[in-house]
Each structure stands twice: as C-alpha cells, then as structure tokens.
Nucleic acid binder design. Structure first.
Length: 765
DNA sequence: GCCAACGTTGGC
DNA sequence: GCCAACGTTGGC
C-alpha cells in the first residue's frame, strides 16, 4: 500500500485538479476539501440520497471551488482497488463490491468515484468506546448545538439546598447537557431521580409539591395524567449527540501516512479510509473508527440506541460545490481507447458506485414502488427497477447535479435520447399510448378512471397530503442511513417553487418535516409571513416568524435575548432542517420505507381503491384506539398550518412531539410531547416544565384537538426561557460566570421578563 | 426534464 | 429458463 502510494505520488499527472480520483479513493471527501481548501466549515452530513430522494442533493456539497492537487495526491493513496464487475443483471453473488475477487485494476477513468457521498460516510459514528462523553468537549462543540438556542446557555438547575453537584464540579456540569438526558417527567421514584443529576428539581420533595399544586389547575376536572409522569414513555431527545459526534476529534492515522502532514487528522478528514479487512484481507472503506471488517464480513446487526431527533442546519446553498467526478468518467461511450471489457465495465458500473450504503445494501425493502412492482412481491414487473433503497446514492446525487457537471459533460449514467440517432426498427421504451377516448369510465377493470389528468393529479395530491388544494405538491427527500442513524429530510414542494432554497418565503411556506420512526409522517406546514396564528388573549410574537431566518448559526453572547436579535447576516436561515432519528430496535428499512411509501403515492398510479395513506399512518404493534387517536391528531396537525416553525413529529411510543424549528425562537428549546390519551408535557432544554406552571392551567389536561394544540403553541410563543441567575459562589474567580436556575425554576416566563420569580429570589437570597 | 414503461442483457 | 435490473424510449 505504501509503495503504491509512493508510486502514485510520483505521478504528477494524476494530481491535477481536473483529474478524477480513482475508485477506491473514497477517503477524500468534500469535507477534506473544505478542511484543506477553505475555511468554511464542512457540513456534518452529506450522504447523498438515492434518486428518489434527489431534490436535496445539490446542497450536499460544500463550496470549495478548486481542488488542490495535494488533495488529489491523497486520493491517489488508495488507487489500486480491484475492479468490481457489476452491472445489468443480478449482481453476482459472492463477489461483494467491497470484497472483489477479481484482481483487475480499475482503469483510472472508471475510478472516478469521487463525491461527497464519501464525505457522508466519513462522518464518524461514535463507537461506544468513543462516545462523546468519553471525549473532551469544548465550547465550540457546544456552540454547534444545532437545536438549542445558541445565544442562551443551557441552564442547569441548582438546588438551593446546596446539594447541587454544580458547586463542586462546575466545569463539568456546565457543558451542554449529556445526550442521554431525558426529557424526563417527574417521577416519584427516587432511584430514578438519583440518576437525574442535572435536574435537582425532580427530587422527591419537589415532586410532591408539584403534584399537589397541579391538582388545582386541572380545570377540566379530569384525572391527572400521572402515568405520563410516572411512566415516561418519551424517547430522549438529544440535540447534542450528533454535535458531539461530529466534533473535531483528533485521531491518529498511522495507517495512512499520506493522508496527513503531521500524522493526525480529524475524523472528518480521515474517514472513510481504505482499511484492510481483518477477516478477508480485502481493502474496504472504513466508515468509522473501529471498522476492522469489510461490509461482507461485518456481523449483520444494528446497534440499538435511543431515538434522537436532531435538527441540523442544511448546508448553505452558497457553499455548494459541484460534484466534479463521477464513477463513470465521461459520457463518451464511444471511447476508442477502452477495450470491450472496459466498456462493459463502465456501462455496468454506471448505476453503482459500489461504495455507498445503497450499493452495499443487499436486501430489497419490499415496500418501495420498485419492490412492489417486482414479481416476488406480487408486482407486475412493469418498472423493472432496483429497490429504491439500493439505488446508488452517488448516482442519484449526480443525477441531480448533472446540470452542474463540469466541462459540459453529462452523467452518462443518465442516458439521454440522442437526437441524431437513427431510430431503431424495434422501438424500446414505453409504447406510444394513444389517447383513445373512453366512453365508458368503467371500461378498465383495474384503473380508476379520471376525467382528465388534472383530476388524477388532484386525487394523487389528496392521497398524498390529505388535502386537495394548494397546487401540485411533491415530496422531496434526502436521507442518510448509517450504522445507527437515519436521517430523513423532507420538503413538500409546490409547483413553481422549483428552487425553494433560493426563495426563503416559499420555502418557509412549503417546508414540512417528515420524520419516520415507524411509519409516521407529517405535513405540518411551517408558516411564513402572515400565516402564523394570532389569537386573542395570546401575546403575539414580537416578530413575524415566517420572515425571520431559520437556523441562526451565529452564537450570540450569553444571556442575550434571542428574539431581539437582528436577522442573521448569512444565508443559513435558508437552510433546511434535518431531522435525525436514531433507530430504536426497528429494522433498518423502516425509516426509509416510510419515506418511500409516501413517495410512492406520488408516482404510483391509482390502481387500488384503498387509500394507502392508512398504511402510512399505521402504527407498528399494539395499536389501540388511543394510538389511533394520536395518529389522527398527528394527521390533522399535518393538515394544519401550525404556528410559525412548529413541526409535529411522530415518534415511537407513540409520542407526538411538537418542536420549534426556528433556532431564534424563544421556544427553540421547547418541546411539547403528546402521548397516548393526549396527555402532554412541555419540556424546556430537556427539562420538564413543572406541573405547577401556569401553562398547564391555561390549557386542558389533554390536547385532543388541533385547536388545543395550536392554542398551546401560541401560548408558548408568548413565553420565553428563564435566563436563570448567575451564581457567584461556584467555581474559581477566573472561570466565566455561568447562569444557573433555581431548583423550581419556572423555565418558561413571559417574554418581557428575564428571570422567573424563583431565580430572582435566588439572586436576592 | 422527469418518469413510466419495457426491451434487453447478464448472472444464476 | 428465470430473475434482476440496466438502458432506452416516448409521453407528459
């Protein structure tokens, strides 16, 4: 390997920027380009979606314009990767792409498998032995917290009784909350509270007071949702996990001396690297630290972890970078220099990069439209396409960027009809469909008859979105599936809004979030100007949320009131929000299947009378009426314009979570969770809002209708987060003064106030 | 430009 | 021969 590397380094022609990196050079990512070429921080995730998820794909790249030759030198380090012969037809079994048995060397042209897809896999999935908790944190990582209001420090309640651990270990306690900090309801179980070190307020005595005080505000007289608090089904929400996950961790790269100048690189830069499989000895792209076996030899299991939902800022459009390389180098199929074998290999490699998760996936999901079409799944084999989940992400990414392909070359993997081509005698493709007038709508037994295509389209729309009006809508997804994490990003796009990223108003109007844990989706609209609710008696937000940029990534000084900040000065507000869900014991395909099912509604002709939407919203296991009711509420919320930037997310439990997506909202760290029976809980910065809080008294115990939910959200929008108080008795004088909260901090206070009475009293005391 | 449809081809 | 799915075509 080293010799080969040296040999590669000795070839200056291979280091030209316009040269395509060879296959197997997947270690070089756009992040690397960023890290080397410019100072723009690389995105944290850039796995390219498959073709059916393509709309987001153009954003995945960073904006480095040029690629320095030295970077390509790095790419060259992994040049000699045996070719994988795979193409049309069923892949040859036993010749796994990452463990090819052939010894042929990939021609350089074939090896142009360079894309940010690799950068996606470059994101280190934390190994249990390398969990963020085990690694030093830094302030930067805290500031990168994608969901918390960056301007406001995470406040840790401190017990006035002096029993807080904060006083003894201030430095450790004031990092961002640990990722496993639950949005935990109060509990009478002291064993539980003992472990809840960050929430002294949940001590038994405090709970007692809360429960007593809560009986009073239950205005409708219904029984208190004690089970909600006693048996918290909520999944922990951890906005910090991925942030920590992607924090710059210095690791040694002794095995790849050419990849760094000083012997150490960041994880982003170092992965994936071609490692040698401990089992079979073949080279394979390591996707994370600790990968010692190739995909084929790796044990097939998925590590279970609590589901985390992380909103991430999507890469700014101006940081886009054109993907310059394809695994098939050019579109010239008539390359005379290649022999027939190479030509065959090129053609057959067009649709597969052999690197991405999709290409490495072996099983059909069985639920996507292409799978459903397969005879083995009872389909008619009309489409004859590969499972959506197995369609190369890189290829689909290039598909989406084919307009940006440099030098005017288009992606040959996306064939285009040649105008000058002589028509073949036997025409292929879809046969010409004569517009034969159908006098009898019931003529066709199988197909639903539509008066015209518009009706058909409208019905599709209705089927997909649960409503008919609003123009042509289109689900667009990007997703990423890694070892443990699944990222799904969805946007509903209306006709005429082809470039949502450049039109924030349209974007805000049409953006919806869809998160699938089991089979859930949501079409909650994020409102834009004029679309936010304003109800009498509820203080309106001091700004129009729809016009305020999202995802302000500029951290403000601590204590600064977020909502009073001016608009962000960069383009990050146009960024999408990405929702990450960490799988909890569900098969890998669940997430993506859900997305596909939704997408399937768009593309598949209406041939079945039963609306598939019932399938989408079905819950896996143990459904009962209340579950159904929650799903119905969820569905209804999806058809409602919620207050600005609130998004409904269905999570396992089932739990309906309502999240404020706007980071600059005072409710950015607030989550409303509604569980079966419509009992709800509000949590702020992972801390449960005390039951004595007036918010609970102003709303029903159960949120059973959209109106009640909206009313609560609007109520919350009129509140802000208590800033706590500065504790001058902790830590050394040299340490920065950190704000803390009283044990019974109200957490949510009127926006014009900075502290709740408890914290104020704590200061005075 | 997108995509449904399907001829065709390679692997088994 | 069957199956998977690539590549092409034409409708929209």
């Amino acid at each position: 390997m080293t010799d080969e590397l040296n040999g590669a380094l000795a070839e200056p022609q291979m280091t030209k920027p316009e040269e395509t990196p060879p296959i197997g050079a997947d270690v070089v990512t756009d992040d690397v380009v960023n890290a080397v070429g410019n100072s723009v921080p690389g995105k944290v995730m850039s796995e390219s979606p498959p073709d059916w998820l393509k709309p987001m794909e153009e954003d995945e790249d960073d904006g480095g314009d040029g690629v320095k030759s030295s970077e390509w030198i790095i790419m060259k380090t992994n040049d000699d990767v045996p070719k994988v012969k795979r193409g049309r037809g069923r892949p040859r079994k036993g010749s796994h792409p990452v463990c090819p048995k052939t010894e042929r060397i990939v021609p350089p042209l074939l090896g142009r498998t360079r894309s940010s897809n690799a950068s996606g896999t470059a994101i280190p999935v934390p190994d249990p032995a390398h969990t963020p908790e085990a690694l030093p944190r830094n302030l930067q990582s805290i500031n990168h917290n994608p969901i918390s209001t960056s301007e406001k420090p995470r406040l840790i309640p401190i017990s006035p009784a002096g029993g807080s651990s904060l006083s003894t270990t201030p430095n450790t306690e004031f990092h961002s909350p640990p990722r496993l900090t639950r949005v935990t309801p109060l509990s009478f179980d002291t064993s539980v509270t003992q472990n809840f070190v960050h929430t002294p307020a949940v001590k038994l005595g405090n709970v007692s007071r809360q429960s007593v005080s809560f009986t009073e505000p239950a205005r409708d007289g219904t029984e208190l949702p004690l089970q909600l608090w006693l048996c918290p089904p909520m999944e922990p929400i951890s906005p910090t996990k991925t942030q920590d996950m992607f924090s710059d961790q210095i690791v040694s790269s002794a095995n790849f001396p050419g990849t760094t100048l000083n012997g150490s690189v960041t994880l982003k830069e170092s992965l994936p690297l071609l490692s040698e499989c401990e089992s079979c000895g073949c080279a394979f792209p390591a996707q994370k630290i600790g990968d010692v076996m190739c995909y084929g030899c790796r044990p097939k299991y998925k590590k279970q972890s609590p589901p985390n939902i992380v909103f991430r800022k999507k890469q700014r459009p101006e940081h886009k970078k054109t993907v310059k390389m394809d695994f098939v180098p050019d579109g010239d199929d008539d390359d005379d220099d290649d022999d027939d074998d190479d030509e065959v290999v090129k053609k057959r490699s067009r649709r597969m990069c052999q690197q991405c998760d999709a290409c490495l996936r072996e099983d059909d999901c069985g639920t996507c439209d292409f799978c459903v079409d397969k005879p083995k799944f009872g389909g008619s084999n009309k489409k004859k396409q590969k499972c959506r989940l197995r369609q190369c992400k890189l290829q689909s990414r290039l598909h989406g960027q084919k307009g940006n392909i440099v030098e005017g070359k288009r992606n040959p993997s996306l064939p285009r009809r040649r105008r000058d081509e002589k028509p073949k005698l036997k025409r292929r493709g879809r046969p010409s469909k004569k517009q034969k007038p159908r006098s009898n709508p019931w003529e066709d037994d199988d197909e639903v008859y539509y008066k015209d295509e518009d009706d058909k389209e409208d019905l599709r729309r209705y089927k997909m979105n649960g409503r008919r009006k609003g123009g042509k809508r289109k689900w667009k997804y990007s997703f990423k599936e890694e070892e443990e994490d699944v990222f799904i990003e969805a946007v509903i796009e209306e006709d005429g809004a082809s470039n949502t990223e450049e039109n924030p108003d349209i974007l805000a109007n049409q953006r919806s979030a869809m998160v699938s844990n089991e089979m859930h989706s949501n079409t909650s609209g994020l409102s834009a100007q004029g679309l936010y609710y304003n109800m009498s008696g509820v203080p309106a937000a001091p700004y129009v949320l729809g016009s305020v940029p999202l995802c302000n990534s500029n951290p403000a000084p601590m204590g600064q009131v977020t909502s009073s900040l001016p608009m962000a000065d960069d383009g990050t507000q146009n960024g999408f929000l990405q929702i990450e869900m960490v799988r909890v014991g569900s098969p890998p395909s669940h997430y993506t299947e859900a997305a596909q099912d939704t997408e399937q509604h768009v593309s598949e002709p209406l041939q079945e009378p039963t609306p598939v939407i019932t399938h989408i919203f079905s819950l896996v296991g143990g459904e009962n009426d209340r579950d159904q009711g929650l799903m119905e509420l969820f569905t209804s919320l999806g058809q409602t314009v919620l207050p600005a930037h609130w998004v409904g997310v269905m999570s396992k439990g089932p739990i309906l979570q309502l999240l404020q997506c706007s980071k600059i909202s005072s409710m950015a760290d607030t989550v409303v969770q509604i569980e079966k029976g419509y009992f709800y809980q509000v949590s702020v910065q992972n801390q449960p809002l005390l039951l004595m809080h007036a918010v609970y008294s102003r709303h029903p115990t159960c949120l059973e209708s959209v109106d009640e939910v909206v009313s609560l959200l609007l109520d919350l929008e009129g509140l802000g987060v208590c800033q706590g108080y500065q504790n001058f008795h902790m830590g050394s004088p040299r340490e920065p003064r950190m704000s803390v909260r009283a044990a019974l901090c109200d957490l949510l206070i009127p926006k014009d106030e900075e502290q709740c009475p408890k914290c104020t009293h704590a200061v005075e005391g």
